[in-house]
């Protein structure tokens, strides 16, 4: 399989990635020798129980934590914060600037870097993509949680990144808003064709959004399972989720998760 993939189709090439974090003077291995590729235009779901180090993995891909092993982004070794890679955090309250309007928040990453007119065009495009055109001049604290998360996504889109890294972006939203935003994300991806890495502990969400899925588990965490999800680009909350294929993938992931997690539960 890997021989068939052309080099320029690979966005991330991760080989033997390990991350140690020092907390209160104690060094702890969070991730242990992960190897995987992220391909152009795909959405890679990474699923795992909370506390396994999913966020640390995402931060490593963004170049925000020191790692050992090799992470190549478009063929170049990643040292320090990656440009063209934007993180979308679960904690939208702290990720947004509460004293800036929606428009100014979306502008944060691009203002002063590109010509003013172009900047405004990109802001408008991003805001319209997430459907907040009537809230340009509102402050984040005047909006609902789902809308604030849309602002964060718009801010990421305005950067026109090569990769979007989602860190459980819908984890703190209610089920209905979450489903709405999942479909929004599918739609945005079909327009922008951006490569995505999507982290979640919600298996349904991981299968629904991913073209490919990886299971992260254990302590220190390693990749224990990988699955292709060829459900196509147009997915539907009702029809896709009740299709036999979807349920089959879901079943496999649950089984693997139980296998990986059951072992650790027995010891703990």
């Amino acid at each position: 399989m890997p021989e068939l993939i052309k080099q320029d189709e690979v966005v991330y090439q991760v080989l033997d990635l390990s991350v140690n974090l020092r907390r209160r003077g104690q060094e702890r291995v969070i991730l242990e020798s992960l190897s995987f590729d992220v391909l152009k235009k795909e959405c890679l779901s990474i699923v795992g129980p909370s506390g396994t180090g999913k966020t640390t993995l995402l931060r490593a891909l963004a170049g925000l934590v020191p790692y050992s092993g090799s992470v190549k982004f478009h063929g170049e070794t990643l040292n320090g914060p990656a440009s063209d890679v934007v993180l979308v955090f679960q904690d939208y309250v702290n990720a947004l600037l509460r004293w800036r309007t929606v428009q100014k928040n979306v502008a944060l990453g691009i203002e002063g870097r590109i010509p003013k007119e172009q900047c405004q065009e990109r802001i408008d495009e991003a805001i319209e993509t997430v459907g907040l055109q009537n809230y340009r001049d509102s402050y984040p604290w005047e909006l609902s949680g789902g809308m604030q998360q849309r602002v964060q996504i718009a801010r990421a889109l305005a950067m026109k990144p090569k990769v979007l890294l989602f860190d459980e972006p819908f984890g703190s939203l209610d089920a209905m808003t979450r489903e709405g935003l999942q479909d929004e994300l599918l739609r945005v991806r079909s327009v922008f064709q951006t490569t995505c890495v999507f982290i979640t502990h919600d298996i349904d969400e991981a299968v629904y959004l991913g073209d490919r899925l990886m299971l992260l588990s254990g302590s220190p965490a390693s990749l224990t399972f990988e699955l292709d999800i060829p459900l196509g680009a147009s997915r539907n909350q009702i029809l896709t989720k009740e299709s036999g294929e979807f349920l089959g993938y879901r079943h496999q992931v649950y089984e693997q998760m139980r296998k990986a997690h059951g072992g650790s539960q027995a010891t703990g």
């Binding site: 931060r59 925000l64 914060p81 993180l87 955090f89 904690d91 702290n94 990720a95 990453g109």
Partner: peptide, 17 residues
């Protein structure tokens, strides 16, 4: 919040910004 400082770094803001 550490999330704020991560997102500032991630958006590539440095120095005066």
């Amino acid at each position: 919040s550490p999330v704020l400082s991560s997102s500032i770094t991630n958006l590539g803001l440095g120095g005066f910004r």
